[in-house]
Amino acid sequence: MKKTLGFIGGGNMGQAMIGGIIESKIFNPEDIMVSDLNDNLLKKVEDKYGVKTTNDNKELVKHADIIVLAVKPHICDIVIKGIKNDISEDTLVVSIAAGKSIGQLEESFEKNVKIIRVMPNTPALVGKAMSAISSNENVSKDELSQITDIFESFGEAELVDEKLMDVVVGTSGSSPAYVYMFIEAIADGAVLEGMPRDKAYKMAAQSVLGAAEMVLKTGMHPGELKDMVCSPGGTTIEAVRTLEEKGFRSAVIEAVRNCTNKSRNLS
């Protein structure tokens, strides 16, 4: 494993990854450096995770073998312009900027760089991330394996064709937000019927967690699992009928499509 990991950007996604990596012990805190322009944020990150921090991206690049571009897509080019002359041919550059293709990143660096494009999600913070990984031809199989190991240290990771990356954004990158809304809506329904909110959140969240585990561990089609819960003329099929009547599945499909298209248009 490379000795030093650098994060340019200490926002929510970067911190989620750092928390997961440290929790898994794949990197020690002293082997991680974070750069950001926000001094208050850096102080928070340093205190919380025990990592090194700096305001200078160039300083980070000089010390890091693997650099994670954990910045918003619209400032990615500005960041790259400031560090491109300091990137060595052995440096692995990992971008988690949504909508930024490998080709666009290569153009910004204006030289041969080892680029890995990854779309993780925020459950990294609890070791349950889903990350999709693509790379350019400069990255060796061993190096790609190293990056995969990093992302699998705080969840699951899949190698995907880069043309699917925008779909990944809509499917796993942004979908935790959809799920949180679903949990909140279930809990609101329970509260409406008299259940205390803390119990409603726990019951809704645990049910979503358990249902997801059923899909992953049984390998059964989600429709089969749904049918197992729906007794003839019972309560569950009545709830399913109501969701269908209100356009539940259609709304989710459109949400994924619109999210995917937004990602395609970010650049």
Rank of each mutant, 00 (worst) to 15 (best):
residue 119 M to V: 13
residue 119 M to N: 07
residue 193 E to I: 11
residue 170 G to V: 00
residue 215 V to H: 10
residue 59 E to T: 13
residue 162 E to C: 11
residue 188 D to I: 06
residue 55 N to Y: 08
residue 17 M to E: 08
residue 225 L to S: 09
residue 231 S to Y: 00
residue 75 I to D: 10
residue 192 L to V: 12
residue 1 M to Q: 11
residue 38 N to K: 06
residue 12 N to L: 09
residue 2 K to A: 11
residue 215 V to S: 09
residue 149 D to W: 10
residue 166 D to H: 11
residue 158 E to C: 07
residue 27 F to L: 02
residue 78 I to G: 08
residue 8 I to P: 02
residue 103 G to Y: 13
residue 161 D to F: 06
residue 265 N to Q: 14
residue 45 V to W: 00
residue 85 N to R: 12
residue 181 M to Y: 15
residue 26 I to K: 01
residue 117 R to I: 05
residue 14 G to I: 03
residue 95 S to L: 12
residue 91 T to R: 07
residue 150 I to N: 02
residue 232 P to H: 07
residue 75 I to F: 08
residue 71 V to S: 06
residue 217 K to W: 01
residue 76 C to K: 02
residue 46 E to H: 14
residue 91 T to K: 10
residue 242 T to W: 07
residue 142 D to K: 12
residue 194 G to V: 03
residue 53 T to N: 09
residue 218 T to Q: 01
residue 103 G to I: 14
residue 206 Q to P: 11
residue 235 T to W: 04
residue 195 M to Q: 07
residue 168 V to T: 01
residue 239 A to P: 04
residue 78 I to K: 15
residue 113 V to H: 03
residue 32 I to S: 02
residue 6 G to T: 05
residue 77 D to E: 13
residue 74 H to L: 11
residue 238 E to F: 08
residue 204 A to Y: 06
residue 196 P to C: 13
residue 152 E to H: 08
residue 152 E to T: 15
residue 240 V to D: 05
residue 253 I to K: 10
residue 86 D to Q: 13
residue 61 V to I: 15
residue 240 V to F: 01
residue 51 V to H: 05
residue 60 L to V: 03
residue 124 A to Y: 02
residue 152 E to S: 14
residue 40 N to D: 14
residue 155 G to N: 06
residue 253 I to R: 07
residue 25 K to D: 14
residue 28 N to S: 14
residue 173 G to F: 03
residue 120 P to H: 10
residue 137 E to H: 14
residue 105 L to D: 12
residue 134 S to D: 00
residue 203 M to Q: 12
residue 89 E to P: 08
residue 139 V to I: 11
residue 79 V to P: 02
residue 219 G to C: 08
